[in-house]
């Protein structure tokens, strides 16, 4: 049985292509056009001069963590360990201490996130019942010179802090009634 093959037609060169020089001049024309368009106006250039010019991330971007505070400035975190439990990378470490307040009971003495281990999944934010941890800073973790510097403590997490007006522990009327 005769094999069937695909017949590929060869590109027929025109005279100017065979002479080569006209094509070179055409190519140089393109180069020169781009050169002058870019040297004066940056017409085709799309480069972003990175550290100075930044493209802003979308609103839903999960960036550096931050801890939120109450209206009186105290930390919202009640050290319930929900985030640490939910975290698949196990990079949140919390030590709790007693506050002596029957409503809040606990607060975080130590709150440490290892940003190198973090996979930025956002599960900690989902898990938190008090809106104490958020990832809405819109910044990614900056490069550092040592690994230790990536372990963010409470102070660093509070740098970008903000007040959250979410009602702590649910509806306060409901708590006071009971």
């Amino acid at each position: 049985m005769a094999k069937k093959g695909i017949v590929v037609s060869k590109h027929k060169y025109t005279l100017s292509e065979k002479l080569y020089y006209p094509e070179i001049f055409k190519g140089m024309g393109v180069s020169i056009r781009h050169f002058f368009a870019n040297i004066f106006k940056k017409k085709y250039t799309v480069t972003l001069q990175y550290p100075e010019q930044k493209e802003s991330y979308t609103e839903r971007f999960r960036g550096k963590h931050r801890l939120m505070t109450r209206e009186d400035g105290s930390l919202r975190c009640v050290a319930c360990m929900m985030c640490a439990t939910a975290c698949p990378a196990e990079c949140i470490y919390i030590e709790a201490e007693d506050v002596g307040d029957s409503l809040v009971e606990k607060r975080a003495k130590l709150f440490v996130i290892d940003e190198l281990r973090c996979i930025f999944c956002g599960l900690c934010v989902e898990a938190c019942p008090t809106d104490a941890i958020r990832m809405d800073t819109g910044e990614h973790v900056e490069p550092e010179y040592t690994r230790e510097a990536f372990i963010y403590d409470k102070k660093k997490l509070l740098q970008k802090t903000g007040r959250s007006v979410a009602i702590q522990g649910g509806d306060s009327d409901y708590i006071h009634k009971n």
């Binding site: 050169f35 870019n38 250039t45 799309v46 001069q49």
Partner: peptide, 10 residues
């Protein structure tokens, strides 16, 4: 620099 201008870079 010239090559970058020709290739639409900076």
């Amino acid at each position: 620099r010239e090559s970058s201008m020709i290739q639409d870079r900076i």
